[in-house]
Design a protein around this nucleic acid. Structure first.
Lengths: 100, 100
DNA sequence: TAAAGTACTTTGAAATTCAAAGTTAATGTG
DNA sequence: CACATTAACTTTGAATTTCAAAGTACTTTA
C-alpha cells in the first residue's frame, strides 16, 4: 500500500508556491505587489515561482494600468484549482493520519 | 499580517521527511525497511533524510538484532513531535483558508 | 531631464537532492 | 573456511532547485 506522500503534487512542494496558490484559491485576481507583501518575498523570487506555476498552466495573468501605473494580477486556472484541491486532499489525509 | 507559510518548518519541507514524520507520529519504533517500503524510496535516500531529521533531534535511533539480523528502528522525539504538530497546525490553517 | 515605480529577466552561486556505487559488520551456505 | 548475502548505511559527483543581486523596459512624476 502506497503512502499518501506519493499523491502530493511537486508543483506545490515549495512553500512560496503553496502560499501563492492558497491565496489564489480564495481571491480572484490578486496583484503582484499584494502577493509580494503577503508572502514577504523579493520580487525576483516571487516572479520565478509565479513563472513556474504559469508554465504548468496553474495560473493566468492579466496586465493593465491602474492609476497610470502598470498592474499585473494573477488568478488560478481551473486546472490549477483542481490540481491544488487534489494536493490539499492528500495533505488533509496525511494530517488526519498523523493526528491518529 | 504575515502569511501562514512563514510558520511552516523547513525541516519538514520535503515530502519524504513529511512522510517519515507522519508515520512516526502514530507508530512507536518503526524500522528502516518498513519506512523504506512504505515510502517507496531507495535506502541511500531514506538514510540521508533520516539523518537530516536526526541532526535536528527530531528522531532517535535504536539498533539491535532481530532474528540474528541487524535491525534499526526510529521514533520521533518529543521535540520532533512538537515541531511536527506546529507544522501540521500551520498546514491545517492553510488548508482551511484555501477551502474558505 | 532626471528620478522613481512596477514587474520582471538574467546571472552566477549556494543549497538541496539524487542515483549509483562502495562500505561495514554480521549471518547463512557449501 | 571461503564466499555470498543482508541491513543499513556513507560517499561521491552530478543534476536540480533555489537564491540574492543586479540589470532591464516601460511609464509616470518632479
Amino acid at each position: 500500500m502506497k503512502h499518501i506522500i506519493t499523491q502530493l503534487n511537486q508543483a506545490f512542494d515549495h512553500r512560496i508556491r503553496l502560499g501563492i496558490m492558497s491565496i489564489l484559491m480564495v481571491n480572484d485576481w490578486v496583484d503582484f505587489n499584494t502577493l509580494k507583501e503577503t508572502l514577504d518575498v523579493t520580487d525576483g523570487r516571487l516572479a520565478s515561482h509565479i513563472k513556474a506555476l504559469e508554465k504548468d498552466d496553474y495560473l493566468e495573468v492579466r496586465k493593465r494600468f491602474v492609476k497610470r501605473k502598470p498592474n499585473t494580477s494573477y488568478r488560478a486556472t481551473s486546472a490549477g484549482r483542481n490540481a491544488f484541491k487534489d494536493h490539499l486532499n492528500a495533505l488533509e489525509q496525511l494530517l488526519n493520519n498523523a493526528k491518529e
